[in-house]
Amino acid sequence: MSASLKPTAPAERAGQQPTIAYDGVVKRFGSLTVLNGVSAEVYKGEVVCLIGPSGSGKSTLLRCTNGLETVDGGRVLFDGGVVPSDQELIRRVRQRMGMVFQNFELFPHMTALDNITVGPTTILGEKAASARERGLALLDKVGLRQKADAFPSALSGGQQQRVAIARALAMNPEVMLFDEPTSALDPETIGEVLNVMKRLADEGMTMLVVTHEMTFARRVADRVLVFDHGRIVEAGPPEQIFENPQQERTRDFLGHLGWNG
């Protein structure tokens, strides 16, 4: 494997412990190998975008990060420790990572505010009043304070996804995992979600984003990982990936999307 295939971290990170590290991760579904030895590191404050064709393993890697999927080979490390498979221990890890889903997965029987406070109150044992106050502040942050008492069914897709982001942030996570957060949205609401994500990135949040929004990846990512057939075929800063891709597969993929730099 040539050196250019190794994900390169920014120089100033050298010697620092990565927040998340994938070490030869293998994942199979039956006879299908969806992750075939994936290695990468994510450092504190970095925004890493995972791109590549459907079924190339990006979402699966994201789910392996917080133990929603177990790995069949290799290791996932978080904050220097292996992500455990034990149900009690993995909860601790999950509480430190926020996750945003393609289909929002807001809880339909709770208002927007309750969706945000349910984690802190039931899992962290936070007092209802303080959770409520923080919840409202988070709704403010995503621009939806006035929708605090609305049920998800009364919100547009973009609004639901912004609430979902606030729900994840309410746990004060160290890392945010985004699994195609705009894929289920109407074109006109994609922007509002991406803006919230951009602001989060500017604040220094460590983010892993599986996305098909190349413009977002180009503008916001510190590094881009290109997936194909369960492997990372190329990794590097967005300038390299989008303007000077080193690998044939990367050029193919971007070409299919009509990306021409």
Partner: peptide, 25 residues
């Protein structure tokens, strides 16, 4: 199943998942 994933990703236990998320729906 996405609801289960969302609740687990928050860090809920199995019992919390059933009581707070699954049964009400």
């Amino acid at each position: 199943p996405g609801q289960t994933r969302a609740a687990l990703a928050l860090g809920m236990s199995g019992a919390q998942l059933v009581r707070k998320i699954i049964l009400p729906q």
